[in-house]
Each structure stands twice: as C-alpha cells, then as structure tokens.
Amino acid sequence: MNRIEEAFFKKIDQQADQPAKNKKAFIPFITAGDPNLAVTEELVIKMAEAGADIIELGIPFSDPVAEGPVIQDADYRALSGGVTTDKIFDMVARIRKVCDVPLVFMTYANPIYTYGTERFMENCKKVGIDGVIVPDVPFDEKSELKPYCDKYQITLISMIAPTSKERIHMIAKEAEGFIYCVSSMGVTGVRSEISSGVEEMIRQVKEINNIPCAIGFGISTPEQAVKMSGFSDGVIVGSAIVKIIANYGQDCIQPVIEFVQGMKKVMAK
C-alpha cells in the first residue's frame, strides 16, 4: 500500500467491540507560489500538522480551463511572482526533509509535456511527490502519462464527473490511489448546493473497484464536508482555502490552519 492509499485506511480509535472503521480523508488544495513559495512551504507543513491527510499542490498554469475564477486568480498571482515548475520541485524537496504527508500535484497536460513527461515524473519521484492529477488528460489519452508514472511509481489519479456515466466502469477498473469524484457540473469554485448524483457515482465505482473515493469541486463549508464524507472516503477543498489565501496574503497561515482544523474536527465526529 502506498502513502496515498494509507491516508484513507487509517483506523479511527474506537471501542474494541465495534467493527474497525476507516477515517475520512481531508484533502486541501493550494496553488504553489500563491502568494509566494515560502508561504506555500509553510502552509503545507502546518496543514499536515493540523491533520490534512493528503495535500494537493497546484502547479500554476497560464490557462487553467478546469478552474473557476478563484483558482484562476491564484495561478496568475503565482506565475506573475515568477514561480516555475523547477522552483516548485525544489520547494517539495525542502518540505520532504520535515514532513511525510502524501503530496499530489494537480496541473495540466502542457506544463508536464513541455517539461518532458519522463523528466517530470522522474523529478516527482526524486523529490517525493506521490501522485498527479491532470484534469485535461481524459482516460482515453492517459497513455500519454501512464507509462512514465508507472516507471517512477507516481500514482495517476483518475477523475469521474456527473457526465462520466457509462465510462465510470472502465475508469474505475484501472484507477489507482483514489478516485477524484467531481461533485457537480462546471469548474472548480464554491457552490451553495451540491447535487445528490455523486452518491450514485460512488456506488457504481465501488461495485467495480473497492478504491477510495474523494469528492471535490464546490465543497467549502463544514456542513458540506460532513454530508459528503458520509457517503465517500474523503473530501477535497480548494477554492475555499485559496480564497482565504487571497484575502490574507502573506498572513494567511493562521486562518488557513484554523480552517483545516475546523474541517478535521467536524469530519472526525
């Protein structure tokens, strides 16, 4: 079992007469380099201490088509601050000296391909990245990345969305690490309501593959996190945290940590 899978199978402390239960994973997302890499580095370490089970680290892209305005702005802030893929690799190497939280890169096909897919995955392994999420590479095109992921033991996380329908079967069958379940139609960003269809999506996945399923896109409040983790194995929260970072800039660490602690607390109940 790799570090990503372990994050979902930690057992909750409970009375001996009850069946063992898996802990729900809380997965925060931040954009690397927003507002700068020093803050990102500290955020990762402190979010891990605050209980984040996996941390999703965005490599900013000039044209993030899967993102809503909040994360688009974070990408622009990071890029105009001069962040590059190499500087992010260096930061991860520094984090890895003090922190072993599972780390997953989220980025787009072009930053990986242009960097050289093999060189990218090799560096991921070298610095201690556990997996990658690439929303603009569909299942049908994953051979673009998969051979190199396999060669360097980087988990390629699959996504399913409300439009996946009959495709869920083939995606779930070959999925590894966990499945990123997109809660509802559209791009990332805070939503006041999340459709109930995601529960059925997860049921279909589990019929085929008993792989952890984490729900993302639109989750921002503790109430949503509790509700979504009720029928999934974890939740991913991005825009809500990135908004805090946008509001507080360099002083974002304390408010972000409080947010993470708050989410962890309600999900542990």
Partner: peptide, 8 residues
C-alpha cells in the same frame, strides 16, 4: 507559442 515551462 509557449515558454520552456509550457506556460502559453
């Protein structure tokens, strides 16, 4: 048209 890091 892009830079060495694939930024368009």
């Amino acid at each position: 048209c892009q830079d060495e890091y694939g930024q368009i």
